[in-house]
Amino acid sequence: MTEQELLEAAAKAVVSADEDEAKAIATEAVKLGLDPLKVINEGFTPGMRDVGDLFERGTMFLPEVILASEAMVAAVAILEASLPEDQREKKAGTAVIGTIEGDVHDIGKGIVATLMRVYGFDVVDLGRDVPLDTFVEKVKETGAAIVGTSALMTTTMVGQKALEKMLKEAGIRDQVKTMVGGAVVTQYWADKIGADAYAENAQEAVQKALELVQG
């Protein structure tokens, strides 16, 4: 198998959510002496991006996304283990995520949490109907780099604005980046309340989260 063929097979293994195949390809890459970071970034990661696209288009479904992410995580673990300690990719950081209190819609938020884990974040998923105090406490406790909130209703999106104020009052607003999402939320709203980023879907959320932590 050439390097190009292996990279394509890696992407395919993720899209087909085949953990055994993904692990076998990662093992093969190590045996062939390929650059593990290249295999991750040009093989498995594009596969996961395809998964996000397919999910967004409604042709791939939540259980398959979970299985695909597990396949990717398993393969990356093998590849990273072959790297010297100082070359291993550092964790992207901690992200606290949840749906604002009063709102129980958490399907989209759960997908964002799943993809963020795949892309190297330590995700603290607070679930749905989360009191604003809890977000503040968890950011303090974990030293999170990002706090992401989801709101699917106009009556709960105001909680995102309140959280901005509470983070300032707690003296930690400068230490954490805020991200907002949910069907009723827009870039206009994010700008208005002073959030650091808005994302329309899970794939975009991950990209923006990476941009925020990488500066």
Binding site: G58, L62, P63, E64
Partner: peptide
């Protein structure tokens, strides 16, 4: 607008429900 596939394999009358527009 489309049926979310939280299960992903459920069918009705032989048609997979997830993703239907």
């Amino acid at each position: 607008e489309f049926v979310l596939g939280i299960h992903g394999e459920l069918e009705y009358d032989g048609t997979r429900l997830a993703g239907l527009y």
